[in-house]
Design a protein around this nucleic acid. Sequence first.
DNA 1: TAGATTGTTAATCGATTAACAATC
DNA 2: TAGATTGTTAATCGATTAACAATC
Lengths: 205, 205
Amino acid sequence: MNKQSIIRLSKYKNTLQRLKTLGFVKVFSDNLADALGIRATQVRKDFSQFQITGNKRGGYNIDDLLERILRILGKTNLQKVVLVGLGNMGTALMHYQGFEREGIQIVAGFDIDPAKIGDDGRIPVYAMDNLGDFITKNRIEVGVIAVPDIAAQRALDILVASGIKGVLNFAPIRLRAPEEVPVTNVNLVQEIENIFCLINAARAE
Amino acid sequence: MNKQSIIRLSKYKNTLQRLKTLGFVKVFSDNLADALGIRATQVRKDFSQFQITGNKRGGYNIDDLLERILRILGKTNLQKVVLVGLGNMGTALMHYQGFEREGIQIVAGFDIDPAKIGDDGRIPVYAMDNLGDFITKNRIEVGVIAVPDIAAQRALDILVASGIKGVLNFAPIRLRAPEEVPVTNVNLVQEIENIFCLINAARAE
DNA sequence: TAGATTGTTAATCGATTAACAATC
DNA sequence: TAGATTGTTAATCGATTAACAATC
């Protein structure tokens, strides 16, 4: 229901998976709160929202808890995404190991540059013309946009028209999407600007 | 004062720069609100917080407004940053054009891998051993961490010990830093997980 | 039982928005 | 002047936290 709590859900998951490798069997709201730097009440409130219950006195069973969270996060299956745009950022994302490790698979890349099209044996790269069809045929739910600003809205329109359900956008521009298609923006220039701004603000105090 | 309003400040800046290229001379709180998808009162409240005033009836002069905002954002000078870790993400950031365009300059990269050390004529890459000295000597204020999880805390410690003022961290791990050094995290796996989660939540409703 | 932990209700806090006086 | 827009105060909203009853 609440976007913040969904983000925390993903963090609980990571913490739980680590605790599990350490041999932990149960966990208390207090433990998770410490790990995330929040309050224990918040943890219990979050779980309450998703109808996750624990045992008074006994905390939460990690296996049960993880299963519930993974189901809520939609992680019971492999999560397939397509990548649109193979510039610097796109290429880095393509090679980034972290996704596979978390059950996220980039199944195909798309670019207008013919030189980038082909299959190096890992992830195939197709021409932009094939984007719509690919999404429809393979029922892809999530697309990542890593094209230049000017091409971003066009890319999004194709994704939406082909039935995409959600988008992660790296182009530093506000995209127009129908309400039912969530678009999350990652703007790296802005992130760095914010840090300088925080530094400046601290200096001014 | 408020982190949200600082982030918006950066967005106002982008919008204003675009309006300026279109030949606009003045702008109303309503215009900026539309551009950011927020309310006009919020825009005026933000400006009020930073002691930016406009003209009743006449809106805000774009040049004046931009100058004020750029000063608050610390954009009067070139913003120098160092990049620690030249894996996929680090390399992509190194080649990303968007920073230079906004007055952000990656002045050096650092990596443990000797094969990555050198100077291709654009941005020099040094051994990790030189990181601390470089920051101190060049009075670098912001560092970007793009090393693997396990190396991230160590990298941060060096940055902090050398007097860094703020950090952007791509390692998917919570780093411990002194309170006065803001650390902003970008976690791409988490961003994609959140999208899937939003999709799932929508389906459940 | 005594102590510890959950789950929920009520209070608090902070950020956004509505309302409106000031004024160009 | 009439109309439009700013700047601020007060109301609202949503999210976090404190308090505490339930109970293992």
